[in-house]
């Protein structure tokens, strides 16, 4: 029953994406329906996609994280400072990657500890991190855009393997890993239990506080990865990176079918949600519609998607009661 309604929902998202593609092909023709454009869409989707997969875990576990954009910015800045870049020159560009991941995971750890052990509402903790991390990024970068000088780094992440951009491959790996983690491991099952009923999980002997902390660390790590991808795509690190990522990620997760109240999560839905939003942007851009119209359309889509989901969920509930 549960799996049945989940499949329905996924099918709905696929149909929505399909319709969007039809509209795109009809209005923009060749400019939309080309391999080049497909790769552009996927490349654009990959950065926010990685963040959204991480967000899926936090929301499924009953939390929320508003600080993802700020963490991406701080990670990108920290990994492109003179100090980090000169260390990378002496050693290898992997230093920059490590730096971004560490900073991301560190911010996630702070979030997680404050939520799980400080017992502060996640909304408040991550709101504070949103302000704090971006502010710190501005201080470090002195509000200047830092250029990535390491050509090896740019070439590696900007390149392709068998025609597939490395950025897209990274996204695919993160999504696949996320799916396995959520659906096939005890970690994922514990996430669902804790999001579904934290008190029951605690009394069943699960280490709820530790697990919650780990969820935020995981998302911080995803933000670090996204920062690396963004640095490669733009060849810069700046405190303005990742603007409004929190909204895009939460929106993608929610229209994908993950319950905002926790206990139900779907990585596949999240990936589809990200693709729907990115394709929408692409279709609008190809038709020369401005970003304001896009924003309105996004807002409408979020509301309609959630309304539809509630209808579906209610119907499933009723058929059970009978």
């Amino acid at each position: 029953m549960t799996s049945g309604s989940k499949a329905n929902r996924t099918l709905g998202l696929v149909i929505a994406l399909g319709l969007l593609c039809v509209v795109g092909a009809a209005t923009a023709g060749e400019r939309f329906a080309s391999v080049d454009n497909l790769l552009t869409v996927l490349r654009l989707a990959s950065v926010i996609g990685v963040v959204s997969v991480g967000m899926t875990f936090v929301i499924t576990g009953g939390g929320i994280d508003l600080s993802v954009g700020a963490i991406v910015a701080l990670s990108s800045v920290w990994a492109t400072t003179l100090a980090t870049q000169s260390m990378a020159e002496d050693f290898h560009w992997i230093v920059m990657v490590g730096c971004a991941l560490l900073v991301g995971a560190g911010c996630g750890l702070v979030n997680g500890l404050l939520v799980a052990y400080g017992k502060i509402a996640p909304f408040i903790v991550t709101l504070a991190m949103l302000a704090g991390a971006r502010g710190l990024a501005e201080i470090i970068a002195n509000r200047r855009t830092q250029i990535v000088r390491d050509q090896g780094f740019v070439e590696f992440f900007g390149g392709s393997v068998l025609g597939v951009p490395v950025l897209v491959l990274v996204f695919a790996l993160v999504a696949a890993g996320g799916w396995v983690l959520l659906n096939r491991t005890t970690f994922g099952r514990r996430t669902l239990a804790i999001g579904g009923n934290p008190e029951a999980a605690r009394l069943a002997g699960l280490k709820v506080a530790r697990h919650t902390t780990l969820l935020y660390v995981l998302l911080g790590l995803a933000c670090g990865i996204a920062a690396v991808m963004l640095m490669a795509r733009t060849t810069t690190g700046t405190s303005t990176h990742g603007g409004l990522y929190e909204l895009d990620a939460i929106a993608a997760v929610v229209i994908g079918g993950t319950l905002l109240s926790g206990g139900r999560g779907t990585v596949v839905g999240t990936v589809l949600g990200v693709l729907i939003f990115t394709t929408l942007t692409n279709v609008f851009t190809l038709n020369n519609l401005d970003t304001s119209t896009q924003a309105v359309a996004k807002g409408v889509i979020i509301v309609v998607a959630v309304l539809l989901q509630q209808r579906l969920a209610n119907r499933a509930g009723e058929s059970h009661a009978r």
């Binding site: 099952r189 239990a193 009394l203």
Partner: peptide
């Protein structure tokens, strides 16, 4: 305090063995 009501019986049974 004990059950995740929306989850299947099997998941609820194995909850303490994860």
């Amino acid at each position: 305090q004990a059950l995740v009501l929306g989850d299947p019986v099997s998941h609820n049974i194995t909850m303490a063995t994860l």
